[in-house]
Design a protein around this nucleic acid. Sequence first.
DNA 1: TCTCCGGTGATACACTGTAACACCGGCAGC
DNA 2: GCTGCCGGTGTTACAGTGTATCACCGGAGA
Lengths: 166, 166
Amino acid sequence: MHDHAGHEGGACGADHAAATMARAEKLCRDRSLHFTKLRHDVLQAVAETGKPMGAYDIAERLSGPERRVAAVSVYRALDFLTENGLVHRIASRNAFVSCAHEHGAGEGLVFLICRSCGGIDETTSPEIEAGLGRTLERAGFRPASRILEVEGECGACHGRQGDDAH
Amino acid sequence: MHDHAGHEGGACGADHAAATMARAEKLCRDRSLHFTKLRHDVLQAVAETGKPMGAYDIAERLSGPERRVAAVSVYRALDFLTENGLVHRIASRNAFVSCAHEHGAGEGLVFLICRSCGGIDETTSPEIEAGLGRTLERAGFRPASRILEVEGECGACHGRQGDDAH
DNA sequence: TCTCCGGTGATACACTGTAACACCGGCAGC
DNA sequence: GCTGCCGGTGTTACAGTGTATCACCGGAGA
């Protein structure tokens, strides 16, 4: 269902970043979109980090002695990237994560946010989709978009430290 | 499944507010919590409005020539109210809505946010719960909390104005 | 009475996000 | 080539969101 690297915190980050950048370049070429330097850099920063980043985190990371990137520019780049499905916004964190795979427009995405490592995994579930569809129909509600974010502990983290966490 | 007043925008607001306040008073009595004037007023403001309110909206509404309520006080009251399930936070809006009914702790809540009237309905669905449970288990993820918010058009709105909305 | 403690008031500050305007560079069309 | 348009970026300003910190107050209990 989801074929990317899972919780990114670790060494898989480079692969994920490479895959993300490759997909972005292809996607922009196919749609004749401008994959400018700023948009490239913003996406790369998020992809390399692998964890949710705030716009100001990104701005700070891209800024240096010779270049200053203002948060407002980052927001514009993020708008572009989210519109094209290259990054996702995590509403519960006011943060953004990169995305290496394709999904059909509103096709039900589930974000799994790990409290321990701060990593985010992303998955889909036809079961949830179906259940949600029926629930909305019962309520007479016509959906346009949705967010589903789960916070907890990822498999790697509770496998690693077991029950001594508390 | 959900027995309260549905999308609140209209005349049902008063009922909803009354029910909410009654539940809050009982709950605080039962748990020996301090249902102070500020907490009462904040809850009442949210319940009467029936739409999602930002903390600053609430502060403004409670403030007048003789009383000034700072946003920071509102946040503290909101913390108290959310911890006790009297209001819910809508992550996608950075806003809060009141809640007139009981739910078991993390028992799957779904928020239906109407783009037209701005009202919020709240429902639950065992189907979604079950599907989500299986999905999380497959992913090896141990959930602690979750949010599920759907934005779209409520039954009343698309019933009323049909297709001439665009 | 004194102390402790939770709730509140108040100030300050950091973070998040948008509006408005100027500039710049590429790309028609002439 | 020149001109005008237009999208992307830089910059400033500002509104909204949320937290940290300290002071004060009033009730409960020693």
